[in-house]
């Protein structure tokens, strides 16, 4: 890795890690994950299932919040505070700046998710659930999902305000979770052009549903290794495409 990119990445990580919001969200993620024990007391039958469902959902939710809140501010703040002038005046290209920002955010997400995952693993083991390898696979898939979200928020952060970035990123996140309905929806469309349009959107918008293997992991149903492999490749390709688009926009931006 180029030293310039590494420098930006490390600084981005430090900056995110110093943010109070980051700690607050990690804290609440852990708190809600642990409080899944209380929810599991209320059910009848398999309490471990409810504990895992609630805990994983809490970790998922707070990690997505961290990804969005950290991502939407990153580039915008540099532009707003005019620190971008200082950075870009150094022997560093705009492409490297974006790559560094993304890698720093990816490291931040890894730290946040890692902290929550370790605590949750220990919690499940103490609660009698043992060491569930499926949960480890779920966290890996969640990390891929978070990388896509980070890339989306970084894209919006490069050309619009944090509020609009937040709205756009959340919208894309929600759409991404229900992309599986698009395939069914297009069959209801009578006009072929609409069907082509819907099909186009299906491939264009982020399909985040594939990373969500909570149900399979908790219910212990089989996970196709090929689908995992394709999801990994999808995430890498989609992140690459988003970063390229971000760089394209950022290159054209003029700072005043």
């Amino acid at each position: 890795m180029k030293p310039a990119i590494r420098g930006i990445a490390v600084n981005t990580f430090r900056e995110s890690a110093r943010n109070k919001m980051f700690y607050l969200l990690v804290f609440f993620g852990i708190l809600f994950a642990l409080s899944s024990k209380l929810v599991s007391f209320l059910t009848l039958g398999d309490a471990m299932k409810v504990l895992k469902d609630t805990g994983l959902a809490a970790i998922n939710f707070f990690c997505v919040l961290i990804a969005i809140f950290t991502g939407i501010n990153l580039v915008y703040k540099e532009i707003e505070k005019k620190t971008v002038f200082n950075i870009l005046s150094k022997p560093l290209s705009r492409d490297e700046f974006i790559a560094g920002k993304f890698l720093g955010l990816a490291l931040t997400m890894l730290t946040a998710l890692g902290a929550m995952a370790v605590i949750f693993f220990a919690f499940v083991a103490v609660s009698g659930g043992g060491f569930d390898l499926g949960i480890l696979l779920y966290f890996f898939m969640l990390y891929l999902e978070l990388l896509v979200i980070v890339a989306i928020s970084l894209l919006f952060s490069s050309f619009t305000t944090p509020i609009l970035s937040f709205i756009f990123t959340v919208s894309l996140y929600l759409i991404g979770q229900v992309m599986w309905t698009f395939n069914e929806f297009k069959d209801y469309l009578a006009i072929p052009l609409w069907r082509v349009f819907t099909q186009g959107l299906y491939y264009l918008l982020p399909n985040l549903h594939k990373f969500n293997i909570k149900n399979e992991v908790v219910m212990g149903t089989a996970i196709d290794p090929w689908s995992v492999l394709f999801s990994v490749l999808y995430a890498l390709a989609y992140v690459l495409a988003l970063l390229a688009l971000t760089v394209l926009i950022f290159r054209r931006r003029e700072f005043q």
Partner: peptide
Amino acid sequence: RILSFGYRNLVADMLFIWSIQ
């Protein structure tokens, strides 16, 4: 299932717990 936005297990759990109560 669509409105749960990826949290369908949680929604089903909550509905089930509510139904028991």
